[in-house]
Design a protein around this nucleic acid. Structure first.
Ligand SMILES: [Mn+2]
Ligand SMILES: [Mn+2]
Ligand SMILES: [Zn+2]
Ligand SMILES: [Zn+2]
Lengths: 144, 144
DNA sequence: ACCTAGAATGGATTCATTCCATAAAACACT
DNA sequence: AGTGTTTTATGGAATGAATCCATTCTAGGT
């Protein structure tokens, strides 16, 4: 049995925050924890979860935290059409998403073409492309 | 010189509407015309253009028209993250989009992998996938 | 323990879009 | 052409998600 009470695990919310040069605050730690519990959660879910954990947090605080985390590269924000923004811990693996048109369920999909795929297109209009984002639309088994 | 005054060209707005089983109304014809003038226009642009052409239309009318056209398959609606919805005549060619992170400029990109690409993923979680939507993010030459 | 830049609060505000009840117009049928 | 039924347009209010702002609070450096 390993004692982790006083451990400073690099993947702990507070360590992540410090490593990113962000101040460690209760809302930030709680939001990071909430993000682990709920895959691809929207702000509402994160607000509710954070509030449950802390007793109270302002809605604005959670939005601010999310913005700080996204800006710091700790969190990825995705905005599937027709849905409020979703958030997930940033894994930097450039994975894609499978979205159910009916219930909005979202699943991760590994990038078939390698790490950062499809970055070259036939005619790029002179654009400097840095990311190819793929959304697979369909029906999940429950909705089919 | 070809006289087209009394022609019933299949690609004329009114013909398109009738073919789709939709009533031909001034706002619908005007919105279809506006869609030809502005690639990937948002609702605001279409409202302004339609209003200029007709003298006046309600905002709601344009939204209703757009919904009817999208439902009928005549128009495609895309929702790039961070931008209001954009609309384009539906070409059914499953092309993708290049989006400038700075100015929001959008360009069409042919699908490199064929008509309906990437529809197979490693693990599809039992989903029935009907579309793979790709957004290439980057900077346009003007913004770079 | 103290200071100060940065973060949280509560409240108002924006933006894109949708909802609703009423008035107007399109098309089918005399 | 006139009538009737259904669909569409109008004006105005309402919504959901997110942002702005002024004030109060707090984390972390000295
Ligand atoms: Mn994901
Ligand atoms: Mn396009
Ligand atoms: Zn589903
Ligand atoms: Zn640009």
């Amino acid at each position: 049995m390993t004692d982790t009470t006083h451990a400073h695990r690099i993947d702990e919310p507070s360590a992540l925050l410090r490593a990113a040069g962000l101040r460690v605050t209760a809302p930030r730690v709680a939001v990071l924890a909430a993000l682990r519990e709920h895959r691809h959660a929207d702000a509402d879910t994160l607000i509710a979860t954070t509030r449950a954990r802390l007793g109270s947090v302002s809605t604005q605080a959670v939005y601010d935290v999310l913005k700080a985390l996204v800006d710091a590269g700790l969190v990825r924000r995705i905005e599937p059409a027709g849905s409020p923004a979703r958030y997930e811990p940033h894994t930097h693996d450039n994975h894609h998403h499978l979205v159910c048109r009916t219930c909005g369920r979202i699943e991760d999909v590994d990038c078939a073409a390698g790490r950062r795929p499809c970055l070259d297109v036939v005619d790029d209009f002179g654009f400097t492309i840095d990311e190819a984002e793929v959304v697979y639309w369909g029906q999940c088994p429950d909705c089919a």
